[in-house]
Write a protein that binds this DNA or RNA. Sequence first.
DNA 1: CAGTCGTGGCA
DNA 2: TTGCCAAGACT
Length: 326
Amino acid sequence: MSDSPLPHTPARTPRSASSAPAARSASARSSAPAAPSASALHEPILDWYAENARTLPWREPDAGAWAVMVSEFMLQQTPVARVLPAYERWMQRWPKPADLAAEAPGEAVRAWDRLGYPRRALRLHAAAKAIVEEHGGVVPDDHAALLALPGVGTYTAAAIASFAYGQRHAVVDTNVRRVFARAITGSAQPTISPTAADLRLAISALPADESTAARWAIATMELGALICTARTPRCADCPIQSNCAWVLAGSPPYDGPPRKGQTYEGTDRQVRGRLLAVLRAAQGPVPKSELDACWPEQIQRERALDGLVADGLVDPVANNSYRLPA
DNA sequence: CAGTCGTGGCA
DNA sequence: TTGCCAAGACT
């Protein structure tokens, strides 16, 4: 029932047989192996999803919006396999936003375990508090309201609105960008970072019907996750193999600018990870001397610790000690 | 806008 | 072994 601007595509017109993406076929015969019209992809991908979707806890019919939201936070840059156990423990302990909101933020950081990017735990905790204080403890169904929550960007807002509430949004993550890059654009990989063109393409490809659009969103993501993978796509098992612009072009290799390789050894991120691991394992405050044992170089160690404090992931306390935020 | 922010598995 | 990658957000 909510209308929101961006990823929410323009309002559906009353529904006469006008620009609905179903009633066109003759026009697609003119040029030879051009990019497939998106509507030609709807049926095969939706059918494929119906048969091949993974069973995941946050997809259960009774999972609820909080489950979707927690999973989306955890899945930001972290693979499903590593999320699953942490997700189960999290939902067991904090089945509702209010349960998490009542906890100390440090407990969220601790329960985050080794999912990585622990600021997400802090933001999820802050989002839970905002949901309690501003939305009566219910995950909002409005895209703009979701977007206003800490840690919720364009993708996550659209994902929650679509997956949890069945709304019609362009849900554009790295999987979807890759599927469209190959199937529609014909390139081996999507652009390095999301572009406005990605969003426009995803919006134009969205089925007109709301519930169909919601299934389409999760289906295209799943296709990217299981079949149209980054490294070795399983094109032989792909439902749109015969429609894919990239395959039809002979699956040319990636020719764009080099992707940035993210080194980790020796970075502040590694040091932060070590420091936080010690604090997660401890129940109470940890003397700084114990943290000092984490990393040999003092300058970098101090910088990392200061950064954690600045981020709110660590609290300095008495006796030259540190702890997870209370 | 480019940089920053964890962690671990796999080709 | 090592580089690449995994449902991004924020500054």
